[in-house]
């Protein structure tokens, strides 16, 4: 049943801008650095000795924001497929479980975000290679900066999906999304337990992997809570 549901969800997101956004996010993040580096490469050159690492840090300054905004937009789009056409009743009248529907949507969304992370990794690498950094590519750091934010942002994905799936008025999830972005942007002032900080990979242990692991764990918990709430509610 899960396979069929996934195929259905994938079919529903065609030609609605999902794929476009999945590409736009990572390309946009790197494009900002293209602008940054082409305008003031001479200045940026003086700021650090390890040009590659400095470049990766610059890119990852925007990764969390793009990720959190992307999550808000994609989840809202995802929920509005059924909301706008009042199709929840039809979908849930089929012999499918509500938990499976919820899981299918979550899976498709995290798949898109994972794809975005892959693209981010490639785009970062390709543009970095065109710049005259010298030294080898720091593969490990490149992978860390590309994929840990995805795992670290899972709590936000789970939270947004929950809000988007249970609200009829999509103003709710978007407003929550704006607040999430603000909190992520203010990550410097937040304590370690605040999950908005995790996508920036900053923590007091200075170990980015912890941010990813905590994201995975807490993401699953929020996912379960959101799913149970969705199952409990009446179909609108």
């Amino acid at each position: 049943m899960m396979g069929k549901l996934l195929r259905v969800e994938l079919m529903k997101i065609r030609r609605k801008g999902f794929w476009f956004l999945t590409f736009l996010g990572p390309i946009g993040v790197v494009a900002l650095q293209v602008v940054n580096y082409s305008v003031r490469w001479d200045y940026l050159r003086t700021l650090s000795d390890d040009h590659w690492l400095f470049y990766l840090e610059n890119v990852s300054g925007f990764t969390p924001l793009a990720l959190v905004l992307g999550i808000a937009i994609l989840t809202s789009f995802m929920a509005s497929i059924e909301n706008e056409t009042n199709a929840w009743k039809q979908l849930l009248a089929l012999p499918v479980r509500k938990t499976s529907v919820y899981l299918a949507k979550f899976t498709v969304l995290s798949g898109l975000l994972f794809l975005a992370s892959v693209l981010l990794c490639l785009a970062t690498l390709v543009y970095g290679l065109t710049l005259d950094f010298g030294g080898g590519v720091p593969i490990i750091e490149l992978l860390e900066y590309s994929f840990y934010p995805f795992f670290a942002a899972l709590p936000i994905l789970a939270l947004q999906l929950w809000v988007a799936m249970v609200s009829e008025n999509q103003g709710w999830p978007i407003t929550v999304g704006v607040l999430n972005v603000i909190l992520t942007y203010s990550a410097f002032s937040l304590p370690d337990w605040a999950f908005w900080k995790w996508p920036t990979l900053l923590n007091s242990w200075e170990e980015p992997m912890y941010s990813g692991l905590m994201g995975l764990g807490v993401g699953l918990v929020i996912y379960m809570v959101g799913m149970m709430d969705f199952v409990r509610r009446d179909v609108k």
């Binding site: 801008g17 808000a72 809202s76 509005s80 706008e84 999509q170 103003g171 978007i174």
Partner: peptide, 10 residues
């Protein structure tokens, strides 16, 4: 859609 104009905004 509610989210589409928001994309432009972002």
């Amino acid at each position: 859609s509610f989210a589409a104009p928001f994309v432009v905004n972002v």
